[in-house]
Measured scan of single mutants.
Amino acid sequence: LQLFIKTLTGKTFTVEMEPSDTIENLKAKIQDKEGIPPDQQRLIFAGKQLEDGRTLSDYNIQKESTLHLVL
């Protein structure tokens, strides 16, 4: 599923993930694309901070959802 990642600077980029992927996987993918170390990434969806060990489906993140990346 394609997700939109929006940064505080207003930049938006996309990543391609599976619902079974963990937040950790997502942070690694963001590191590949943007060079931001996972330990500096905080991801927010629907007002909640996402925890590394959980999956996208745990948070009911669907295709074309927008996640906010806070550094």
Score class of each variant (00 low, 15 high):
L1W: 13
Q2Y: 10
Q2N: 09
L3H: 01
L3W: 01
L3M: 04
L3Q: 01
L3P: 01
L3V: 11
F4L: 11
F4E: 07
F4A: 06
F4M: 11
I5N: 00
I5G: 00
K6V: 13
K6F: 07
T7F: 14
T7R: 12
T7V: 10
T7K: 13
L8N: 15
L8V: 12
L8Y: 12
T9M: 08
T9S: 12
T9W: 11
T9G: 12
G10C: 03
G10E: 05
G10N: 07
G10P: 02
G10L: 05
K11E: 09
K11P: 07
K11D: 09
K11H: 14
K11N: 10
K11A: 10
T12I: 13
T12R: 09
T12K: 09
F13I: 10
F13N: 01
F13Q: 02
V15F: 07
V15M: 07
V15W: 02
V15R: 00
V15N: 00
E16C: 04
M17W: 09
M17E: 01
E18I: 12
E18Y: 14
E18M: 13
P19V: 07
S20H: 12
S20L: 13
S20I: 07
T22L: 13
I23T: 05
I23Q: 01
I23C: 02
I23M: 03
I23D: 00
E24R: 10
E24Q: 12
E24I: 15
E24F: 12
E24W: 14
E24N: 09
N25W: 10
L26V: 08
L26T: 03
K27H: 02
K27Q: 02
K27N: 01
K27P: 00
A28F: 10
A28M: 15
K29G: 03
K29W: 07
K29P: 00
K29S: 09
K29E: 06
I30Q: 00
D32H: 14
D32N: 08
D32Q: 12
K33A: 14
K33G: 05
E34S: 09
E34K: 09
E34G: 07
E34N: 12
E34L: 15
E34A: 15
E34Y: 12
E34D: 04
G35D: 06
G35K: 10
G35M: 06
I36H: 12
I36Q: 03
I36T: 10
I36A: 04
I36L: 07
P37I: 05
P37Q: 07
P37L: 09
P37V: 06
P37K: 10
P37Y: 05
P38I: 15
P38L: 15
P38A: 15
D39W: 10
D39K: 09
Q40I: 12
Q40V: 11
Q40R: 13
Q40S: 11
Q40D: 10
Q41W: 04
Q41I: 09
Q41E: 01
R42C: 05
R42A: 06
R42D: 05
R42Y: 14
L43R: 00
L43K: 00
L43V: 05
I44W: 15
I44R: 06
I44D: 04
F45G: 02
F45M: 06
F45E: 01
F45W: 11
A46W: 10
A46S: 11
G47E: 06
G47P: 01
G47T: 05
K48E: 15
K48R: 12
Q49W: 11
Q49N: 11
Q49K: 09
L50K: 00
L50E: 00
L50P: 01
L50V: 05
E51L: 10
E51K: 06
E51P: 02
E51G: 04
E51A: 07
D52P: 08
D52R: 04
D52C: 03
G53T: 11
G53I: 07
R54C: 04
R54P: 04
R54E: 04
T55L: 09
T55W: 04
T55G: 03
T55E: 05
T55P: 06
L56R: 00
L56K: 00
S57T: 15
S57E: 09
D58C: 02
D58N: 06
D58V: 04
D58S: 13
Y59H: 03
Y59T: 02
I61Y: 02
I61P: 03
Q62Y: 09
Q62N: 14
Q62L: 10
Q62W: 09
K63C: 04
E64N: 15
E64V: 06
E64R: 11
E64D: 13
E64C: 05
S65I: 05
S65R: 04
S65Y: 07
T66S: 06
T66V: 11
T66H: 15
L67N: 02
L67T: 02
L67G: 02
L67C: 01
L67I: 10
H68I: 10
H68S: 06
H68E: 14
L69G: 00
L69P: 00
L69N: 01
L69S: 01
L69E: 01
V70C: 04
V70P: 01
V70Q: 06
V70E: 10
V70F: 13
L71P: 15
L71Q: 10
L71K: 10
L71M: 10
